[in-house]
Nucleic acid binder design. Structure first.
Length: 461
RNA sequence: GGCGGCGUGGCCGAGUGGUUAGGCAACGGUCUGCAAAACCGUCUACCCCAGUUCAAUUCUGGGCGCCGCCUCCA
């Protein structure tokens, strides 16, 4: 059995057959860098990080590209608000993005690409669109003529007639059709601008992803990912531009879209103002819990980041940490380990079924705990099992798990060590009243002690 | 209004035409000085109504409800 993915283009699960055997080319829409990203943005990044790690683990040679939209109306607006240049705003928030994403153990792309560094590619594409009759210049801007591209609507499953029925926006007077969209925007005074055959201006949002993805991955690359809210118009427009400009299709073989993060029963979004910043949640619950929450449901579904989900993800994370702390290091994969790994692979091959994959991970932990309970951490069956766990966590939680396992029980302060020793002494002397009092005292310091056959364990909470 | 998705046990969340998801919570037990952790056991569901079928939670149709997109958005 091979890998199967749900392609938004067909709305079906399809066998994954990459363009070039053994290689996967993949592009994911990154942030518009005008502010701190929220949990929903971060979830998308986690989802595609897991997909990428899985493909790598499965032996594909993956080329991963992600963009920064660093020129845009919102950046310009933000710059005015903060009294900075739009370059400064873009720099500030792309650095902030990098920091959050790194803290979540999300691997850097092979090609982190910035719109402002690829203007010539975009200009070239726009010229091609005009030459081929798919775009027209009006008032210093260039518009894509949607009615010239007969496949327009194929990704989002709508027709031009459908869309006209639902029009809600005041069309720009320069457009021939209300649904035409800008591929090049004429600069207004004071805005960042680049020279072009149509005068000074900047690229439209959609063109950047078309141009940069093909620049690095060519046409007909394998996976294009992003949130489901990008299906229309963003990805629809990307297809139109790319296929119209090159005359080749498909632009992308498999379109993958992740579901939205909900708070309560509403989508978390900037416009609704109900957002939780990714950096705040990471600071509160730690990266591992956040990653687990992000993949606790299938990537295509929406996922709730409310209290209950948080608690459950926390438990999963704690079980993992606690097992890793007590279990021996991984060794040669055992037969039993291989069986778990097969189940993990089967789950992930089925459209990246992370909830089931996570279930497999927890079953390994249970099995490992049972072994340890029976014959202790030296049980010869453990290393081969732990090896399977390591491989799974390598894909699902990335380097975060190891970092936490090592750093988690970090240097207890002298005072805490002292108290723990006092408590151990009290317990030996059967002075349990005193031992319990010290335990309470430690708890107040944020330290939980657990008595195990191997001795007292200190867990910082 | 148009397009798309979803509705599973107290909760989160997979999945299947007849056979165990997994987790959280709860309860009982083992262990423990007591706890905690861990392990064992119990808890058995599939929105409603028709239809197809030997058999539907799973397929088809209708209904109800929820969500996303149609405007910037992961």
């Amino acid at each position: 059995m091979g890998l199967v993915v749900t392609n938004t283009l067909t709305r079906k699960k399809e066998d994954f057959v990459p363009r070039d055997e053994g290689k996967v080319s993949m592009y994911v829409c990154g942030p518009t860098v005008y502010g701190d990203i929220h949990v929903g943005n971060a979830r998308a990044m986690v989802v595609f990080d897991v997909i990428r790690r899985y493909l790598l683990w499965r032996g594909f040679d993956v080329t991963f590209v992600r963009n920064y939209t660093d020129v845009d109306d919102k950046i310009i607006a933000r710059a005015a608000e903060e009294g900075l240049s739009s370059e400064e705003v873009a720099f500030k928030y792309s650095a902030a993005f990098d920091e959050v994403v790194a803290s979540l153990g999300i691997a850097a792309p092979d090609h982190p690409v910035r719109a402002t560094e690829h203007i010539p590619d975009m200009v070239e594409m726009i010229q091609s669109l005009i030459e081929r009759g798919f775009a027209y210049e009006a008032g210093g801007s260039v518009w894509f003529a949607v009615d010239k591209f007969k496949d327009y609507g194929k990704l989002s499953g709508r027709t031009l007639a459908d869309m006209r029925a639902g029009e809600r926006v005041e069309p720009d007077p320069n457009k021939r059709q209300p649904l035409d969209f800008a591929v090049w925007k004429a600069a207004k005074p004071g805005e960042p601008a680049w020279d072009s055959p149509w005068g000074p201006g900047r690229p439209g949002w959609h063109i950047e992803c078309s141009a940069m993805s093909m620049r690095y991955l060519g046409t007909g690359f394998d996976i294009h990912g992003g949130g489901s809210d990008l299906v229309f118009p963003h990805h629809e427009n990307e297809i139109a531009q790319a296929e119209a400009a090159t005359g080749e299709k498909p632009f992308v073989r498999y379109w993958l879209h992740n579901g939205m993060v909900n708070m309560g029963n509403e989508k978390m979004s900037k416009s609704l103002g109900n957002l939780v910043l990714a950096k705040d949640l990471v600071a509160e619950v730690g990266p591992q819990v956040m990653r687990i929450m992000a993949i606790a449901g299938s990537y295509r579904s929406g996922v709730d980041f409310g209290e209950a989900s948080l608690e459950q993800a926390t438990r999963v994370s704690e079980r993992l940490d606690s097992f890793r702390r007590d279990a021996p290091a991984g060794g040669k994969l055992s037969e039993e380990g291989r069986q778990f790994l097969n189940r993990f692979t089967e789950a992930m091959d089925d459209d990246f079924n992370t909830p089931v994959a996570l279930g497999t991970m927890q079953e390994i932990i249970r099995r490992g705990n049972t072994l340890m309970g029976t014959s202790g951490p030296d049980d010869p069956q453990l290393p081969g099992l732990v090896e399977a766990l390591d491989e799974i966590t390598g894909v699902l939680v990335g380097p975060v798990a190891h970092a936490q396992a090592e750093g988690g029980s970090d240097s207890p302060t002298a005072k805490i060590e002292e108290l723990v020793e006092q408590r151990d002494r009290a317990r030996k002397e059967k002075d349990f009243g005193r031992a319990d009092a010290i335990r309470d005292q430690l708890k107040q310091l944020g330290v939980v002690v657990e008595d195990t056959p191997q001795g007292t364990r200190v867990v910082s909470s």
